[in-house]
Design a protein around this nucleic acid. Structure first.
Lengths: 250, 250
DNA sequence: CTTGACCCTCACGCCACGTCAGGCGTCACA
DNA sequence: TGTGACGCCTGACGTGGCGTGAGGGTCAAG
């Protein structure tokens, strides 16, 4: 003979729930104490356990009542319920993939994290950024660049890398073909480079571009970065930039 | 500019739902026609699509409102929701296995199907049953047996087979040890057999058992069944049954 | 005899709509 | 110029499965 509280704790449900089941007649306790307390027998509790299980299986209280009163159809009900749950499962699976897609989309719209940048541009990226901040942090170009790139998503950075790679590839092609920096191919590559900077980082008209080209030679860090790709490339790029700027002037 | 009905159909929701969203201010259409019709712009529909998706993801309308008003936290919400859904998925998985277990238990409490019997006792079972029905269908013993076995579950039949096998094994042991049918071992096996029949099929006191023993010899079908196991076994069993019955009498 | 934990019975609240009822608006067709 | 079949409107109540009080009685320990 257990009271509501005891039964509730045993079955992990609330007292109100027991009251509710009593109210709707789904499970009235077999006895009441003299003072009106609900008293549940072991049989009541067993029955209740079934109710709880069926509820967890997703049956409505009405269905549960039917199940308890007509035990013959239990198998049928279970089968149907299994199908229902299996269906819900599929829906949820779909939902998860939908969420994942939504997440990916949203992630792409979120600024990229340092980790993602490291993944894209290698270990040294953050360091060189900090260094550049030190050197150029107070120039307008750098401020503009920082403001733009702060909102860059991973996708944006991926495009940046693609563009950068294809510009390098254009220079490689010109160099490997023995074309001089003043050649059309080299100048075109330089123009691509200028537009890349202009579009992605900061306003970069040909004159500003010239300054950047000079920097590639005067600053050993830039020089090293380019020369790692192809020996002498820093000079080649600078000359191509100048040639391109000259071409634009005329 | 779409009306409620059109929007509802497009998004697979009901008109009432649109009314509801309007009522609670989650999504009021940007315009109304002169006659008061709700008119949804493309922007409204897009917003609604988000609402629908979020709802399908399990968010409450309140959460959806927050999401739509504070798009910065979308990723956070999605992540959390993904976790929620993943959790729900696990729960449902557990639920399915719970249902499966419940199903198995219920199946065991259901009478066994002919298929299950065939599986247990081999192809010929149904035929021999029909034949027996023909021969003994009007005897009380058969009627009692039929009534009992009709409610047998698969588990019951499995126990029957186990018992039957172990009784045969007992007889084999006696035979192989060269013990005569009147030996203690043979009589004990016969007694096991009697109790097996008595408990599982029909009331089988020693005198009835004697008759069954005689049948094993007089009916070629029974004889064949036993002699297939061990040549001469039908006679051996009959004699053991008689010896056992004699033992009980005294 | 008090105290605090438990129990009772109303009775209203919640969410996300469903489901009428009663009354306009709109449109194609006669 | 009707006319009938739709579609739209507002308002209001219903649903399921309880949650959450309010207001009061009961019980065991100290």
């Amino acid at each position: 003979m257990l009271t509501v509280g005891q039964v509730a704790e045993q079955l992990g449900i609330t007292v109100r729930t027991l009251h509710h089941y009593d109210e709707i007649g789904l499970l009235r306790p077999s006895e009441r104490s003299a003072s009106g307390y609900r008293l549940y027998t072991d049989a009541d509790v067993t029955r209740l356990q079934h109710v709880v299980v069926y509820r967890r299986l997703g049956f409505t209280l009405e269905d549960v009542a039917l199940l308890l009163q007509d035990p013959q159809s239990v198998v049928e009900h279970l089968r149907r319920q299994r199908a229902v749950v299996a269906h819900r499962l599929e829906e949820l699976q779909d939902l998860v993939t939908a969420i994942d897609r939504a997440l990916e989309r949203e992630m792409d719209n979120q600024p990229a994290t340092p980790e993602e940048l490291k993944e894209l541009f290698g270990e040294g990226f953050n360091d060189s950024q900090a260094e550049a901040e030190d050197r150029w942090g107070d120039t307008d170009a750098w401020k503009q660049s920082r403001q733009r790139t702060a909102g860059f998503t991973k996708q944006d950075w991926e495009r940046v890398k693609e563009e950068s790679d294809s510009i390098h590839a254009a220079f490689f092609a010109a160099i490997d073909a023995g074309e001089p920096p003043t050649s059309r191919a080299a100048m075109d590559a330089a123009e691509l480079h200028r537009r890349h900077i202009d579009e992605r980082f900061y306003d970069c008209p040909p004159e500003v571009h010239r300054g950047l080209g000079d920097l590639y030679v005067s600053d050993p860090r830039f020089t090293a970065t380019y020369d790692e790709l192809r020996p002498g490339m820093a000079y080649y790029v600078r000359d191509a930039i100048h040639a391109n700027a000259d071409r634009q002037d005329s």
